[in-house]
Design a protein around this nucleic acid. Structure first.
Lengths: 131, 131, 131, 131
DNA sequence: GTGGTCTAGACCACT
DNA sequence: GTGGTCTAGACCACC
């Protein structure tokens, strides 16, 4: 069962932390098609946050085709399909790269430092990978 | 004089778009130390947005040491200096790396693709650099 | 909960009065790490001023690392950390010392009187310190 | 003849820099009663700023009883009189001490460091003192 | 309920 | 003309 962790000390909203972690787990293979997710109430209780926040995160993931909900049984990883064309995905990537780089560069980091830090972070994400 | 472009309807707030573009222009040398910026009212008029929005963007850049304001004269590019400690800069970098990577990974990109795209973008930013 | 007082009609802008008082409260331990601040709207209502003015004060305190904001929950005292380099802190100190001394000297006070008064004030600030 | 220096790189408005320096010079005895000041046009030309700015500074000093203007001859240091009572002067001092200390303390400086820095600055001001 | 963004418009300070 | 402060009020995102 996926282990979700949130940091209340972050400026990133809680529901986004949940969405991002589930997406990452699916993208990296930590969660396989058909795997169940923690129930809304269980997860909300464990993280000591409002169940509505989890429900919102899950339903966004359903809307995006990452999860499926089965009435009375819970949420499960959906069969993945490429929703976006390659071009669309690249456009979305560059949309988020530009503000990220603007901030990083003006913090005084150069290309190699940024890439280094990204590689460090990616390795942490990949730990526990099942695939 | 710097040419700023914004897209209303983006999820990125207008004032952030302005901040990012000014930061990039300064970081890449398109704007040099002492260069004046478009006046708050002029830029607001040109972009057809409220002057307060520009004022907010500029004042954030002042707080980050990118610009200086001079009452009655306008905003100017400040002499760049290290205002944040190394630890603080790393903290801010990691703050923006995590949501960025989460989004990129969930778009289906892997580490090498993300790094590739970042390197491409960085090269484009450097083109036109004066210093 | 922190009690903030402002004097309209002062030459010091309202948002600066708020910033200064919160800073003092945090620096002297009257507010501890994690303590919540009055909500933007509640404080604005209590002081009978516009919420935007409080929002401006709080967001400056966030940029200086004194507070943290959490969407939908409120503002909280942040874990204090050194965000500015030693050089930058000295630069900021000298920026405020010169106009302060110019004013004090022109009021007819000499060095020892100014230092005396500062020491008195500092002792008052430290009274009530918790840590 | 008094030598006035302004830094356009400061956030302190030019007219305030002029006012403060004249006041300091008078308070420390660098300028004695009856001494002439540089003419508005001469000083404006020397500092490469708008004559109105100097005129404004001088007329504020006249209003405060620091200078006297003699039609066609220029501005001169006025016979000093105590405009404010001791109580009033102390009130004004504490008015400016509080925001100053709030900022200094939250920059991480303690009492001895602040006093040190003030003593350094005061020595610089006193250099060239005539009295 | 909370904070975040943006608008429209006023009045003041500075050059 | 420039920026700085403040108000009033809207709409959205988050919990």
């Amino acid at each position: 069962m996926l282990r979700i962790q949130i940091t209340t000390g972050s400026s990133l909203p809680i529901y986004r932390q949940v969405v991002d972690q589930v997406r990452c787990a699916v993208a990296t293979g930590k969660l396989a098609v058909g795997d169940p997710l923690p129930s809304v109430r269980a997860l909300a209780g464990e993280l000591v946050i409002n169940p509505n926040t989890i429900a919102k995160a899950y339903s966004m993931l359903v809307r995006d085709g990452v999860l499926e909900s089965h009435q009375g049984r819970g949420y499960f990883v959906a069969r993945q399909r490429d929703i976006y064309t390659r071009k669309e995905r690249l456009r979305r990537l560059s949309d988020i790269i530009d503000p990220f780089l603007a901030e990083a560069v003006s913090l005084g980091f150069d290309e190699s430092q940024i890439v280094d830090e990204i590689q460090k972070r990616m390795q942490k994400l990949s730990v526990g990978r099942t695939e």
